[in-house]
Design a protein around this nucleic acid. Structure first.
Lengths: 149, 149
DNA sequence: ATATAAAGTAAAGCCCGCTTAACTAAAAAG
DNA sequence: CTTTTTAGTTAAGCGGGCTTTACTTTATAT
């Protein structure tokens, strides 16, 4: 089999295995938090992209400003998000994770990593060097894709 | 850095990149189909696990029989699923993907693979052999995990 | 100074997923 | 043959996400 086909096949196979497993685990975890997916997504957004205003939230979540406002309201009620007035623009709000919110996100990320840890346990010491190298290549390749956009 | 730590870190980093990207793409795709997540999940289930009855659907989806029945009803109305009587047990129904449903699932899988294809384009020929090897190791390791359960 | 635009909120209403409860029909058990 | 269990459906009702419309408040442009 030619190289380009081979790597494509391998990546596809990995994708199938990975998605199947990770999606289910993720959904299960989010359910345990008592939050809905859209709500938890906002927490994740704040974690990865940092504090921001309502407008960014609504854009990134692909919903209207009204919808974002409602979702955020619930998260503020639950004390997972802190909503303060922007001193430079009194119309705007600054949203950020509270300590409680940050903790929950941290738990989510750990949950996502748990399966990877189990996986690592099934990889021999000899293999692991190779896998580490390959993952670094993949991560770098993914980074290049993002840049192009 | 010791090997066990190193591979764990690499797997975590890859997980983060992968999840971020794949989840968003998936949600976006499902939206274009006009179906809800739970509905599309049932189609995926039928694709991966094959034809089955209502009870299996409701168990795997973690919802009551009533909920499963309603979801399936919509998919039957949309002609994505065929629902026939089980000849051996006239209480039971046999659910299977219609041609239309199978096509939609196929599109979904292609969509999931598309990013992998782009990724492959950013990996040099020299690197690709290594990546293929590593992915095979990972897929095998994942398989071993499933067996244990 | 006035008009316009922007950031966010409130309310009404829709659709959807989900549950419980009540029901039908067929199979299995006694 | 009757009783009980199993497979699935139907209907009522709750809660959530989302949209549209209308509104308030603050900033910006003319």
């Amino acid at each position: 089999m030619s190289k380009p086909v081979q790597i494509t096949k391998s990546l596809h196979a990995w994708m199938d295995v990975f998605m199947h497993r990770s999606m289910r685990g993720w959904g299960r975890f989010v359910k345990t938090t008592g939050l809905s997916m859209p709500q938890f997504s906002i927490l994740m957004q704040l974690h990865y992209k940092g504090s921001c205003g309502m407008s960014e939230i609504s854009e990134r979540s692909n919903v209207t400003a009204a919808a974002a406002s409602q979702l955020v309201e619930k998260l503020v009620q639950s004390e997972l998000i802190e909503r303060t007035e922007d001193p430079n623009d009194r119309r705007a709000k600054q949203l950020s994770l509270s300590k409680k919110g940050a903790k929950l996100v941290e738990q989510g990320i750990e949950e996502r990593h748990r399966w990877m840890d189990e996986l690592a346990g099934n990889i021999s010491a000899e293999e692991s060097g190779l896998v580490v190298e390959a993952l670094e290549i993949l991560i770098r390749a993914a980074g290049h894709l993002e840049e192009k956009k």
